[in-house]
């Protein structure tokens, strides 16, 4: 039978326009679909992800680290070198072609964030999906209250998104605080895990939303610290990383109890996660 319906597995070629070295492990790839019509009609929301194909390496889910309004015609993917596909991707330079399909997944509830103070808490590569939200908020600055960005890295040389952090700090009503687990000579900033930064900022939980992303343990301790500070569970929002093969709710690699992270997430509130058996909260 001939197939006229769209193929959910078929990615579209995209060209690497630029590569930004964020640190020794993370690069941000600036991409555009090679077909101008595809590129012009592509729409996505902060928190969504793409299935990325690299020749001979299969596919992996990568969250989009840019906001549509902030980078028109361009898609940013910030990728940490972790496995076969991401290692191969790190070898690619400007001009190389990969393939993308998506966007997939439930995104951050941007309309719920309007009028709120926003607290972003990121660890390592976890700042990537938050970067998309921050860009989106800054592109429409008047609709959001004070923005606080807390970012933890292992060491000062591991701090990624330095150019972004420097820009954000210049914006009115934006505060950025960094911390590292292990200092290096010359580091005068905070030392310690990122939840400790919560003590250094003024918080108004009732008027705020907290957005959190990082490694599993960081999520665990940050969510607990936010609750201790008085944030209600529905005001704490995080996004989960999972192994995925299809991205469209079929292959089941990202199962989370009765949910599939690819379609029911990856963005969840803490209130939602409380009812599930989540590695990040265990």
């Amino acid at each position: 039978m001939p197939h006229t319906q769209s193929d959910p597995y078929l990615p579209q070629p995209a060209r690497i326009l630029r590569v930004i070295g964020e640190n020794s492990q993370i690069k941000t790839f600036v991409l555009a679909f090679t077909d101008p019509a595809v590129n012009a009609s592509f729409r996505y929301q902060p928190g969504q992800f793409l299935m990325v194909s690299v020749p001979h390496c299969g596919e992996a889910p990568i969250s989009i680290s840019s906001a549509q309004q902030a980078t028109p015609g361009e898609i940013h993917l910030s990728v940490r070198r972790a496995g076969k596909l991401t290692s191969a991707m790190h070898l690619l330079a400007e001009g190389a072609i990969i393939a993308l399909r998506g966007p997939y997944g439930r995104f951050f509830p941007m309309s719920d964030l309007c009028g709120k103070n926003l607290l972003f808490v990121g660890g390592g590569i976890g700042l990537a999906p938050l970067r998309a939200v921050i860009q989106s908020c800054l592109a429409d600055r008047g609709r959001f209250g004070a923005i606080t960005i807390l970012y933890g890295s292992r060491t000062p040389s591991d701090i990624a998104f330095r150019a972004d952090l420097a820009c954000w700090e210049q914006e009115a009503g934006v505060q950025c605080l960094l911390t590292v687990d292990t200092p290096e000579p010359g580091w005068s900033g905070a030392v310690g895990v990122v939840p400790k930064l919560l003590d250094q900022v003024a918080l108004d939980p009732a008027a705020s939303k907290a957005l959190v992303c990082g490694p599993p343990l960081m999520i665990k301790f940050t969510l607990a610290a936010l609750s201790a500070k008085g944030f209600a569970d529905q005001d704490i929002i995080t996004t989960l990383e999972r192994h995925m093969k299809c991205g469209v709710g079929l292959c089941r690699h990202c199962h989370l109890d009765n949910k599939l992270v690819c379609v029911d997430g990856p963005v969840f509130t803490k209130a939602e996660l409380n009812t599930l058996h989540v590695m990040e909260l265990a």
Binding site: Y9, H56, A82, G83, R242, H253, M279
Partner: peptide, 26 residues
């Protein structure tokens, strides 16, 4: 050149949910 294959998998396999980098939520 190459081919992209869809193959049976099983949720009981240890690697079914393991992510690049080693974290396994199950």
């Amino acid at each position: 050149s190459g081919e992209r294959l869809r193959c049976w998998d099983a949720c009981t396999f240890a690697g079914f949910t393991r992510m690049a980098g080693g974290h396994n939520p199950v």
